[in-house]
Amino acid sequence: MSVVVRTIARIIVPMILAFGGYVIMHGHLTPGGGFQGGAVVASAVALIVVVFGAERLKRRKTLLSLLEDLGAIAFIALAFLGIGVTFFRNVLAGGGGLFGVPVPPGPNPGFLDTGGTLPLMNWAVGLKVIAGLGSVVVLFGLFGGKDDR
């Protein structure tokens, strides 16, 4: 692509990454969550593939598959945390520990330290969606190249 497109992409990709991280991190307070924020970050990957070419991200495929496995394992482990009562029991909610502050009932400004296992599950699913969609985009970009098909 031309130099204008490359410069604008270098400016705008960190903004997209920050917005995706915000959407994942505040998934239990505002509209959004793991899937939506992961899709936002994967759109940044798509922008990099369109502007700079998929060859730049060829070495990162190992990192993406590692992130996918990490997200899946973290999700299953968080679900197994509540196996004492039921699968997917939210054991951390209201317990006073990590993300354990109880929520005042009714409309409130929203506190980040609430939600129990929900923010951790948001991050796990977010990593999974980032890695999955990003690797799909990179694979479509690499297909038809001269050395890797």
């Binding site: 969550g33 993300f99 502050v101 009714g106």
Partner: peptide, 17 residues
């Protein structure tokens, strides 16, 4: 949802809990 899952976003509590 606020008492059991401790989340403001009811959709997230339905999806993950």
């Amino acid at each position: 949802a606020q008492g059991e899952a401790a989340a403001n976003n009811v959709v997230t509590s339905v999806v993950f809990d």
